[in-house]
Amino acid sequence: SADYSSLTVVQLKDLLTKRNLSVGGLKNEWVQRLIKDDEES
């Protein structure tokens, strides 16, 4: 899986927004959300 934890907050928020995922919570929660989205898609 991609190394989301190395991305900036701005990059992570951009990815979350593009995938229609929530940008609520902490940075590590966003990373988990993106990883989960990868596994489900």
Rank of each mutant, 00 (worst) to 15 (best):
S1Q: 13
S1R: 09
S1Y: 14
S1V: 13
A2W: 13
A2T: 14
A2N: 12
A2V: 15
D3H: 13
D3Q: 11
D3K: 14
D3G: 12
D3L: 11
D3A: 10
D3R: 12
D3N: 10
D3P: 11
D3V: 10
Y4L: 02
Y4A: 03
Y4S: 01
Y4V: 00
Y4R: 00
Y4G: 01
Y4P: 01
Y4D: 00
S5V: 08
S5N: 12
S5L: 10
S5F: 13
S5Q: 10
S5E: 13
S5P: 06
S5K: 09
S6H: 12
S6Q: 13
S6G: 09
S6M: 12
S6R: 11
S6L: 11
L7Q: 04
L7W: 11
L7D: 00
L7N: 01
T8C: 07
T8V: 01
T8Y: 00
V9P: 07
V9T: 11
V9E: 15
V9I: 13
V9W: 11
V9D: 13
V9L: 14
V10G: 11
V10R: 13
V10N: 15
V10P: 08
V10Q: 15
V10S: 15
V10A: 15
V10H: 13
Q11A: 07
Q11I: 05
Q11P: 01
Q11R: 03
Q11V: 05
Q11W: 02
Q11C: 05
L12N: 00
L12W: 01
L12A: 01
L12K: 01
L12S: 01
L12T: 01
L12H: 00
K13L: 15
K13V: 11
K13R: 13
K13D: 02
K13W: 11
K13M: 14
K13T: 07
D14Q: 10
D14V: 09
D14M: 10
D14C: 12
D14W: 11
D14N: 10
D14H: 10
D14F: 10
D14K: 09
L15D: 01
L15E: 08
L15W: 03
L15M: 10
L16E: 02
L16H: 02
L16S: 01
L16N: 00
L16K: 01
L16T: 03
T17D: 08
T17G: 08
T17W: 06
T17M: 13
T17E: 12
T17K: 14
T17H: 09
T17N: 09
K18Y: 08
K18L: 10
K18M: 10
K18R: 11
K18V: 08
K18N: 09
R19M: 04
R19F: 05
R19K: 06
R19Y: 05
R19W: 03
R19C: 00
R19I: 05
N20D: 08
N20Q: 09
N20S: 07
N20K: 11
N20I: 03
N20V: 03
N20M: 06
L21S: 02
L21H: 05
L21D: 05
L21N: 03
L21W: 02
L21M: 04
L21K: 02
L21G: 02
S22M: 05
S22I: 05
S22P: 13
S22R: 05
V23Y: 08
V23T: 13
V23E: 06
V23H: 14
V23A: 08
G24M: 14
G24Q: 15
G24E: 15
G24Y: 09
G24R: 12
G24F: 07
G25W: 04
G25V: 03
G25P: 01
G25L: 02
G25Q: 03
G25M: 04
G25C: 06
G25R: 00
G25F: 02
L26H: 15
L26G: 15
L26R: 13
K27C: 08
K27Y: 11
K27R: 08
K27M: 13
K27Q: 09
K27H: 09
K27E: 08
K27S: 06
K27N: 04
K27D: 04
K27G: 03
N28A: 13
N28C: 10
N28W: 15
N28I: 11
N28F: 12
N28S: 14
N28E: 15
N28R: 07
E29G: 02
E29A: 07
E29F: 04
E29I: 04
E29R: 03
E29H: 06
E29D: 15
E29M: 04
E29W: 02
W30A: 03
W30C: 06
W30M: 15
W30G: 01
W30I: 06
W30F: 05
W30S: 00
V31H: 01
V31K: 01
V31T: 03
V31S: 01
V31Y: 04
V31L: 07
Q32D: 12
Q32M: 09
Q32H: 07
Q32N: 12
R33A: 09
R33N: 04
R33T: 05
R33Q: 06
R33S: 06
R33Y: 04
R33D: 03
L34S: 00
L34Q: 00
L34F: 00
L34E: 02
I35F: 06
I35C: 07
I35H: 08
I35P: 02
I35Q: 10
I35E: 09
I35D: 05
I35N: 07
K36Y: 06
K36R: 12
K36C: 12
K36F: 05
K36H: 08
K36S: 08
D37Q: 09
D37V: 03
D37A: 11
D37E: 06
D38A: 04
D38M: 06
D38I: 04
D38N: 04
D38Q: 04
D38P: 04
E39W: 11
E39N: 08
E39K: 09
E40H: 09
E40K: 14
E40Y: 10
E40P: 04
E40L: 12
S41W: 07
S41D: 07
S41Y: 10
S41E: 08
